[in-house]
């Protein structure tokens, strides 16, 4: 899976990860090579438990790999070590994350949930607020900015989560089955919004999904099987 070198924003080389359960060792990733270019989208499909979420976690540097290398733009990272202070400092601006379960903070209202992403990146509060409102309006939930997440529908929550992921104009958005909890119609709307927003924001999207239709909507598609990533 290789692309034009100049515009690569995220890549891995020989990324491997295994889990040990008692005496059994399960290799979920076996030397995965991946490249994601600027403002492009890539979907990864695979069976449940094949290591899709693990791959996203490794890319976000939330866990350590057994070996291999990750590159965030020009920043080479040793995947087998814990995230350094520098990486943590870069992460908030470089990555946006969207999860199946939304993970909105219940004590904050919609606007505050979006803004917390900007706060983590040390953004200017006034400009961030303006941008948060812009993104919320783009997601069609601007009227709900003062509501707490518990009062929103699943689709609305995921739209807020997308706005939060995009607040810092990240280079890459990692989306882990973002429509998994939604009904078909809402899922289509949300996916459309996600793809559209990433294109507009010039953020690359790495989408993990079980849904073939959504996968086809991305620029490139890959399949994770037996620990290897295969381009379709």
């Amino acid at each position: 899976m290789s692309e034009t070198r100049s515009s690569i924003v995220l890549s891995t080389k020989k990324l491997s990860k295994s889990f040990v359960f008692g005496e059994q060792r399960i290799e979920v990733l076996r030397g995965v090579d991946l490249e994601l270019t600027e403002a492009s989208s890539l979907s990864i499909r695979g069976d449940s438990g094949c290591g899709k979420t693990t791959l996203l976690n490794l890319l976000a540097r939330l866990e350590t790999a057994d070996g291999g290398e990750i590159k965030w733009e020009n920043l080479s990272l040793d995947a087998s070590t814990r995230a350094s202070k520098r990486e943590i400092g870069v992460r908030a601006n470089f990555l946006g994350v969207v999860y199946q379960a939304y993970y909105l903070i219940p004590e904050l209202n919609v606007l505050e949930n979006v803004l917390i992403g900007a706060s983590l990146a040390g953004g200017n509060p006034l400009r961030s607020k303006e941008r948060a409102r812009f993104l919320l309006s783009k997601m069609g939930v601007e009227a709900k900015e003062a509501q707490v997440p518990q009062k929103l529908s699943g689709g609305e929550r995921q739209r807020v989560a997308i706005a939060r992921a995009l607040i810092n104009q990240p280079k890459v958005v990692l989306a882990d089955e973002p429509t998994g909890n939604l009904d078909e119609r809402t899922a289509e709307e949300v996916m459309e919004l996600l793809l559209e927003s990433c294109t507009e924001e010039k953020s690359s999207l790495l989408l993990v999904t079980h849904n073939g239709t959504f996968a086809k909507a991305t620029d490139r598609q890959a399949f994770l099987q037996d620990g290897s990533l295969r381009q379709l």
């Binding site: 903070i105 004590e107 904050l108 706060s119 040390g122 953004g123 003062a146 509501q147 707490v148």
Partner: peptide, 19 residues
């Protein structure tokens, strides 16, 4: 600002919005 958000979240967890 980098150090302000933990304080902000701590405050919000004690005194949530709309409550």
């Amino acid at each position: 600002m980098r150090f302000a958000w933990p304080l902000y979240l701590a405050w919000k967890q004690l005194f949530p919005s709309q409550k």
